[in-house]
Amino acid sequence: MASWRAASRQSRKFDGHRAILFTSAGPEGRLLLQARRGSLIQDRFPDLVAAAEQLPQGLVLDGELVVWDTATGRLSFEALQRRAAARGCTATALAAKSPAFFIAFDALQIDGIELLALPYAERRRRLEVLFTARTLTAPWTLCPMTTDPAKAREWLEDWTDVTGVEGLVVKALNHRYRPGARDRAWTKIRRGSTAEAITGAITGTLTRPQLLILGRHDRTGRLRPIGRTVPLRPAAARELAEHLTPAAVGHPWTGARFTSAWGTRDVLDTILVEPDLVAEIGADTSVDRGGVYRHPIRYVRLRLDAAVDDVPRCGGGPAATAG
């Protein structure tokens, strides 16, 4: 435990959208927000644009966008999804009802000086100095950090009961920042049993999906089935139907058959879809050696902010068996 404490730092993991923040005096305005997939989304968050006067020029921060729902008095991922899709007058109206916050957890550039090659410990120190020197207040928030395992354990046990706080992220103190890479030096620890998977097939129809057949890539990059969901609720089915795309030629599961339950021979009537949607799932720990869940999986929600490369890889296993 002592070596773990010396080599890493833990921060709370918030349930939001990852984003990169830029400040500039250029023609695009003083604030730019870039989503994980590269699109600029500052027009969806006029409240953050208006608050950019607190920030210095030449700043690049990595962080999480979250939204506070004034009606429920808590962080709301659903309200964030609505805001991320809104523009113009609708975006302004939603900003008044569900204000956004940017929770900064890394500094990539300060005062125009690039910090990517610095170890995380030094980037974090400069981020803390920035918040103190500029006396930054909401909507700009500094993500809490600790190197104390006892404090991290307290956060995991107590703060994950708060809606919008999913768990912890453990980061190596001596690592530089790697743009565009899924940093394997960062480990996510959730208190609950939620995870991510890729939607590769469905039962029902594209307009009314009933079940999802989910997969993950193995170490060779091959998409392996890992399980199926329980029947979708009507609202979830409607949400998914808006984003499902019929499979193109060359789908990795072409010709595969999927069973209705682990260990049975009953075959599902499935439709292959483009494997480009990430689903958040809830499942138990009954998993075989190939990473296949033995019991049906609970669909939680669609993760439009996540890419398939963000989904953990499975350990392999047969390509045409899914429970």
Rank of each mutant, 00 (worst) to 15 (best):
A50D: 09
R134F: 10
Q54Y: 03
A79S: 14
E280M: 13
G167T: 05
K97E: 06
T141M: 10
S286I: 12
R125Y: 05
C143A: 11
R238G: 11
R191I: 02
V66M: 14
S98W: 13
S3I: 10
L277P: 01
R134S: 14
A93D: 15
A50H: 06
L142P: 13
A152Y: 06
P312M: 15
G112C: 11
L232V: 02
S8K: 14
L32R: 08
F258D: 00
K151L: 15
G204P: 04
W4C: 11
P275V: 04
T264Q: 09
G250M: 08
G263P: 02
L212S: 05
V300T: 10
E154T: 05
P246T: 11
I202D: 00
T207Q: 10
R208H: 14
L130M: 12
A84W: 05
E280L: 01
T72Y: 12
R153G: 13
E64W: 03
R182D: 00
G316C: 00
A247L: 06
L59D: 08
G282C: 12
Y177S: 00
G16L: 04
R208L: 13
A319W: 08
L136F: 01
V308I: 11
S11D: 08
A201H: 01
E242D: 03
R298S: 10
A283F: 08
A52I: 11
P318H: 08
A138Q: 12
D111P: 12
D288Q: 00
Y120D: 03
K188P: 01
T285M: 10
Q210A: 07
D15C: 08
A50I: 00
G290L: 05
G73H: 00
T160D: 11
A320E: 09
L40Y: 09
T141Y: 11
D284W: 04
R18G: 06
T72I: 07
L168A: 09
G290Q: 05
T254L: 11
A172K: 13
L223V: 10
R265T: 14
L55V: 06
T160A: 01
A51M: 02
L130V: 00
G112L: 05
L59G: 02
Q210K: 15
R5A: 13
G291L: 03
A241K: 00
P179W: 10
D158S: 08
T135I: 15
R36H: 13
F77R: 06
A93K: 15
G38S: 06
G290M: 03
P225D: 10
E128A: 07
L61G: 02
G112M: 01
A248N: 13
L156S: 09
Y293E: 01
L168K: 05
V278S: 01
R44I: 09
L277R: 02
P139S: 04
P312G: 03
D310T: 10
R301W: 01
A172Q: 15
P99T: 01
L48G: 00
T194K: 05
L116R: 15
V49M: 10
K97T: 15
G16D: 02
I103C: 07
R265Y: 09
I226H: 04
L142H: 00
E128F: 06
W140T: 10
T259S: 07
W186C: 07
Q57S: 15
D106G: 07
A172M: 07
G255N: 02
V267S: 07
A181G: 09
E157H: 12
A319T: 08
S76T: 00
